[in-house]
Amino acid sequence: MAIETSNECMTVAQAQSLLQNGVDCRGVSDDPPRFQAGDRVRAKVMHPITYTRLPRYVRGKTGTIAKVNGVYVFPDTVGQRLATKPQYVYSVRFAAQELWGPEASPRDCLYIDLFDDHLDAT
């Protein structure tokens, strides 16, 4: 089902409310999160021609769930005005060397928020 976007002219009051309150991107899911902090996960290897929040540099890389951030609508489908597809977002920690090879610092790491559809268990 396509998501309808209003073409109405935004009023001053609506702009003030938007600046003050923002846009809530959270969603609701009846399912428990698939992963917990400490779980090892692998980012999927996929190359959609449409919009995605899964950057190429983490695809196929293994990381660790640092935190379960809660449920949010899925920009990969919302961006195409398809379904909101609410799902869990996880903060995933990748070692710099896992992403960039042995020349990266053994101490450094990267945290990125990834959606459930982007992750596989290892």
Partner: peptide
């Protein structure tokens, strides 16, 4: 310094 850990945060989602 080398002994300090750098954490890069890619704010890729809605946080």
């Amino acid at each position: 310094p080398d002994e300090v850990e750098i954490r890069v945060w890619d704010s890729n989602a809605d946080l």
